[in-house]
Simulated scan of single mutants.
Amino acid sequence: MTGIRYVTPLREGGSVPGLVEADDLGTYVVKFTGAAQGRKALVAEVIAGELARRLGLRVPDLVRFEFDPVIALGEPDQEVQDLLKASGGLNLGMDFLPGALGFDPLAFEVDSAEAGRVVWFDALIGNVDRSWRNPNMLIWHKDLWLIDHGASLIWHHNWKTAGPAADKPYDAADHALARFSPDPTAAAAELAPQVTESLLREITALVPDEWLLDEPGFAGPDEVRRAYEKVLLNRAASVHARISLAGKQKEKQAPPKWLRTWVEGKNAT
Score class of each variant (00 low, 15 high):
Thr269Val: 15
Thr33Gly: 13
Glu50Thr: 13
Glu190Lys: 15
Asp209Thr: 10
Val263Thr: 08
Phe65Gly: 00
Asp222Gln: 14
Leu19Tyr: 02
Gly220Met: 04
Ala123Cys: 03
Lys230Leu: 13
Gly102Cys: 09
Glu229Trp: 06
Leu51Thr: 13
His157Pro: 02
Ile203Phe: 00
His149Phe: 10
Val63Glu: 11
Ala192Val: 15
Arg201Gln: 14
Glu75Asn: 12
Leu233Ser: 12
Ala227Met: 08
Lys248Gln: 13
Ala165Met: 11
Tyr6Ser: 07
Gly220His: 03
Gly163Met: 07
Ala36Glu: 14
Leu55Val: 12
His157Gln: 11
Leu42Asn: 03
Arg64Asn: 11
Glu197Ala: 11
Arg64Trp: 13
Gly89Ser: 03
Leu212Glu: 02
Ile139Thr: 07
Leu146Trp: 02
Ala100Val: 07
Ala100Met: 05
Arg133Phe: 11
Trp145Phe: 13
Asn234Thr: 05
Thr261Ile: 15
Ser244His: 08
Trp258Met: 12
Glu202Val: 14
Ile4Tyr: 13
Gly265Tyr: 05
Arg11Asn: 10
Asn136Ala: 00
Val29Gln: 04
Leu92Gly: 01
Asp143Lys: 15
Ile243Tyr: 00
Ala227Glu: 04
Leu200Cys: 04
Gln253His: 13
Ala72Trp: 04
Ile203Trp: 01
Val7Arg: 12
Asp95Lys: 12
Asp111Glu: 13
Val118Gly: 04
Ala246Arg: 14
Gly265Ile: 14
Pro135Gly: 03
Pro256Gln: 02
Gly26Thr: 15
Arg117Lys: 14
Asp82His: 10
Glu66Ile: 13
Val224Leu: 02
Leu153Met: 12
Arg242Asp: 07
Ser238Phe: 09
